[in-house]
């Protein structure tokens, strides 16, 4: 079973991203679970959300404690939250930042697994015109952990967004995911 934990701040779309990944996996005939850790709900507050993906039915109903991957949508959280908590030897950490993975490793004193960075905020500003880095982070994750193929992610975006926000914005989201997939730096 693949388990990922998402760190973001209320309003940055961490919940949407965790659900979106699950929905795309469902379209690829996987079993899924996506749920946030509900605390005081307010914009800007740190939040965690989770996604589980498996080939077999998922019976467990408790929070993820040992994720295979952690995605940090807001790098300012690194200062206050132990984002590497529960990550194993092969753990994957993906951070939305302009910094090199080496700098993140040093900052967190994280010597294991994989650290990857991508400036998803800049990508979303370039493509959508607003700082909404959650969708690009899905593209970044797909590069380091191809649990859901890019094609499935793109299909899901079309399915979910086309009617709601129109072709132009849908394409901008797809562009954002593709750019993050290309621009991610692994170290």
């Amino acid at each position: 079973m693949f388990e990922v934990r998402w760190h973001g701040r209320g309003g940055q779309g961490a919940k949407t991203a965790s659900q979106f990944l699950a929905e795309a996996a469902l379209e690829a005939d996987k079993y899924i679970q996506a749920f946030p850790e509900y605390g005081p709900e307010r914009a800007g507050a740190p939040i965690r959300t989770y996604t589980r993906i498996d080939d077999a039915p998922i019976n467990v109903h408790s929070p993820v404690t040992n994720p295979e991957a952690v995605v940090v949508i807001d790098h300012t959280l690194l200062a206050s939250i132990d984002v590497t908590e529960g990550l194993g030897e092969d753990g994957i950490l993906v951070v939305n930042t302009a910094d090199d993975p080496k700098i993140i490793r040093e900052r967190l004193n994280f010597k294991k697994g994989t650290v990857a960075t991508v400036d998803a905020t800049k990508i979303s500003l370039d493509t959508l015109g607003i700082p909404m880095p959650n969708m690009p982070m899905l593209g970044a994750l797909a590069k380091v952990k191809p649990i859901v193929p890019m094609d499935s992610l793109i299909e899901r975006i079309k399915h979910k967004f086309l009617k709601k926000i129109g072709e132009e914005k849908t394409n901008a989201n797809i562009e954002g995911i593709k750019r993050a997939y290309e621009e991610i730096v692994v170290g």
Partner: peptide, 12 residues
């Protein structure tokens, strides 16, 4: 059903 645990978890 269990509040949040299943009510607010997305499953297939």
């Amino acid at each position: 059903q269990d509040g949040f645990i299943t009510s607010h978890a997305v499953e297939g």
